[in-house]
Every structure is written in structure tokens, then in C-alpha cells.
Amino acid sequence: MKKFDFCDGLVAPLDRANVDTDAIIPKQFLKSIKRSGFGQNLFDEWRYLDHGEPGMDATRRKINPDFILNLPRYRGAQVLLARANFGCGSSREHAPWALQDYGFQVIIAPSFADIFFNNCFKIGLLPIVLDASNVDQLFREVEATEGYRLLVNLQDQSVATPGDESFLFDIDPFRKHSLLNGLDEIGLTLQHADKIKAFEEKRRAAQPWLFA
């Protein structure tokens, strides 16, 4: 997993609620058997005017000039500011892969869908939940200020604005530790292999039909 400690990044605002994973990365790109290369198709149906299919050359496609990520002022954004229930819908990890591959390191929203939220941590993409009123304020500031950046510090669990205002966020201590150190969760779990085996043996004795 990619290590995450802090990010001083340009912010892009995506002002709509319930952004689903079908919108983040449409299904035709899920046919890939690779883990990389999804960034050019992030928000494909909103970002381009033509219909995208796997294997197309993105540089030759018709860009939708009105889509927020296509505005020159948001090019190279690393922090995505979003609305409630971001990432709802399917469990496709391709959605966080596409966001990360595009260049995002942090997503800030008042709430996230459970599976998406969980998937982000597995790849070192940091989802941050802030109060809706704070998110509202950030939307106003980013829209009013070209080149608006936020400083996200995982150690301190803080998001600092250019006006030196700071918002604190919650994160599970285990997840924080894993992110800060870029730990391999499978490796960590396998350290408990004896416990898993012992649990399994007990279960096999009590409910043998589960092991047929």
C-alpha cells in the first residue's frame, strides 16, 4: 500500500451529492485485468463529450469544457472536495484506483458510502469526513479563490486552509498507523496465522458442515 503522511494540494470541488461508483469509473473500463491506468477514464461520461471505450487514446477525445476537472484552474488537483454519500453504489475498487491514478490523494466529504470508504484505505487514498457546515465553507472558499490549496496532515489529523483555519478529523488508530507506514495488511494478518488456524479448528469441530 502507498504510504500517506501529508498532502499540500490544489483543491477541486465536485458539487453534487450521491456521486456513485458508476459515475467515478463506468463499467466498460472494469473489463481490464490490470490495477493501473484507470485515471484517464475517471468520471468518463462527465469529462468527455464522446462515448469512451477501453483502449481509446484519451488525447484524441472530445473534452467537456464545462466539467469541473477540465477547468484549467483545477488541473493537477490532489484534493477532491465532494458532497454527501460520495462513492455510493458498487464495490468496485476501480473507483479509488481511478481517483488515485488521476492524481488525487485526499477526498473530503460530509459522508462516504461504506464500501468505497473502506476501499480507499486499502490503497493509501485518504477519505476525510468533515461536518457538512465545514464542507460548505470549503466549497465557498475554493470557488472564490483560484489556486486554493489545503494542507492535510495525517499525523495531526488536521486539514488547514490558506486562511490558517484548521479542521480536525477522526480516523481509526489502526488505519492511521497502516497509512503512515504503508503497511501490507495481508502480511499483518498473517502474523496471526496461528490464531486463525486455532479458530478454524474449533469451528470445524462445532460446525463441520461449513468445511465440506
Binding site: 464495490s91 468496485r92 475498487e93 479509488p96 464500501i115 473502506n118 476501499n119 490503497i123 481509526d172 495481508i186
Partner: peptide, 20 residues
């Protein structure tokens, strides 16, 4: 419940998941 691909690999390798 549904899981992402990293978790698919986690279950394949360990028969377990880290959950809240």
C-alpha cells in the same frame, strides 16, 4: 457483504477480513 479487490486478495490469503 460486498468487498473491494484488495479485500478479495486478503480473504484469499488469510480467510479473514479486518472489519469495524
Amino acid at each position: 457483504f460486498g468487498i473491494g479487490t484488495s479485500e478479495v486478495e486478503h480473504v484469499l490469503a488469510t480467510q479473514c477480513l479486518l472489519m469495524k
